[in-house]
């Protein structure tokens, strides 16, 4: 098996008296899509925020490319090559796809042009990236506010990989999407892994999205590692059982 690029070892985190994470470990491997599943309050979002540098763990190791990192914040993590796409997508609805992709990182002309934005260069780069991700159907000149939920999600993901990260963390990318839009996002997620990225996806949609599009499934329960599966070897029921604990209830999540 390929070496993991990002590993968490024995991570614990508490907020006041609440233990959000206890001794959690996780490996993200290049070329693989890992699903992070769990019931509400299982600690999924906290774990993603630890990985993205928003939260600092109380104890535990953060290993990147085999070296232990002392993560100082989100900017340092992004610099390392770990990008996070949050649920709210952080898109500007009044700007088009190209402007959103490059927001805050515009290519500009010399000072005497008043740092004129190099629209053509950005548009060419955007075309390349969208083509590589098989997202050619996205219009570059429409405002993203006029686009479907799936297209907006895909633009947010495309933006995260624009500067060649090694790891992408996706927080609930399918939460507000129809099945067909979620399937488009699933295609994109596998496309990212096919390009050698390590991808982590939080999802509640076990039966469709997770089983169809991920390689590994990591289950959190009450802030601890509850189970770990290879996606091809389990049924949705087994995953859900691990999420809720034991066999007492079969909860058809998603």
């Amino acid at each position: 098996m390929t070496q993991p690029i990002l590993s968490l070892r024995g991570i614990s985190k508490h907020f006041g008296g609440v233990r959000a994470l206890t001794d959690v470990s996780l490996d993200l491997v290049p070329g693989q899509v890992t699903a992070l599943v769990g019931d509400n309050g299982a600690g999924k979002s906290t774990l993603v925020k630890v990985m993205s540098g928003v939260h600092r763990p109380d104890t535990g190791q953060y290993l990147f490319e085999g070296r232990e990192m002392h993560v100082t914040g989100p900017a340092a993590v992004a610099q390392m090559g770990v990008q996070t796409v949050y649920q709210d997508l952080a898109l500007c609805d009044n700007l088009d796809a190209v402007q959103n992709l490059f927001l805050g990182r515009e290519m500009t002309g010399p000072w005497w042009t008043g740092f004129r934005v190099s629209r053509a260069a950005a548009e060419r780069r955007a075309r390349e990236v969208l083509k590589r991700l098989r997202l050619e159907s996205i219009s570059l000149s429409r405002n993203v506010g006029a686009m479907s939920g799936g297209q907006r999600q895909n633009i947010a993901i495309a933006r995260s990989i624009l500067w060649e990260p090694k790891v992408v963390l996706l927080d609930e990318p399918t939460a507000a999407l129809s099945h067909s839009a979620a399937a488009q996002v699933g295609d994109l997620v596998r496309e990212l892994a096919a390009h050698g990225l390590a991808v982590l996806v939080i999802s509640h949609d076990i039966h469709h999205f997770v089983l169809d599009n991920t390689d590994r499934i990591e289950v959190l329960r009450l802030g601890r590692n509850a189970a770990s599966f290879a996606s091809g070897t389990v049924t949705g029921e087994q995953v859900v059982n691990a999420m809720v604990g034991g066999n007492e209830s079969i909860n058809r999540a998603g």
């Binding site: 952080a90 898109l91 500007c92 009044n94 805050g104 990182r105 008043g114 934005v117």
Partner: peptide, 28 residues
């Protein structure tokens, strides 16, 4: 008009007006 439509500053005006939090997270 040039400043608003062609420069980085102009783009940021529009971005902030629509979604200041997104602009902030984009490093603006």
């Amino acid at each position: 008009s040039y400043i608003a439509s062609e420069t980085r500053f102009g783009t940021y005006l529009y971005a902030i007006g629509n979604n200041a939090e997104a602009a902030r997270r984009a490093g603006i």
